Simulated scan of single mutants.
Amino acid sequence: MSSARQRAALLAPLFGLKPPALTAWLEVELGSTDALDRWTPRAPGIASRAVAPRTIYHLCPGNVPEAGLQSLLIGLLLGSRNVAKLPRDPAVRKAIRAFAASLPAPLRPFLALRTAFRPKEVAGPNIDAVIAYGGDEAVAAVRARLRPDQVFLPYGHRVSLLWLGKLVKTAPGLAAAVAHDVSAHAQLGCLSPQAVYLAPGSDAVAFCEALARALHALPATPPPLAHAAFIRNAKHAVRAAGGRLWESASPLGSTVLLDPDPAFRDGYTHRTVAVRIASPKAVEKALLPFREKISTVGLRAPFSPADEALALALGAERICPVGQCQQPPLFRHHDGRPRLADLVKWVDREVL
Rank of each mutant, 00 (worst) to 15 (best):
H333E: 10
A95Q: 05
L288D: 08
R339K: 14
C325A: 13
A84H: 01
A9V: 00
V83R: 04
P262A: 11
I56S: 03
I127S: 03
A311T: 05
P148D: 13
P104D: 04
A52C: 04
Q194V: 12
V322A: 10
G31R: 00
L73R: 01
H180L: 09
G243E: 07
A282V: 13
P65D: 03
D266C: 15
K293D: 06
A234G: 10
R42G: 05
L78D: 01
R49P: 00
A341G: 09
R339M: 13
A50S: 04
P329W: 04
A237T: 12
H185A: 14
F207E: 02
V159W: 11
D181P: 13
L73F: 03
F99E: 12
A229C: 02
D136M: 14
Q326T: 14
L191T: 09
A67H: 02
A123H: 05
G201R: 14
P87D: 02
V256L: 12
I46M: 10
V283C: 12
A175V: 05
W25T: 03
R158W: 14
L36W: 01
W39S: 00
A228R: 04
R276D: 09
D203I: 07
I319A: 13
G201K: 12
S183Q: 14
E317P: 05
A311V: 01
D37Y: 02
D342P: 09
P53V: 02
T33M: 04
V297Y: 02
S295H: 15
A263N: 13
C208V: 08
A24G: 11
A263F: 06
R349L: 15
L257Q: 15
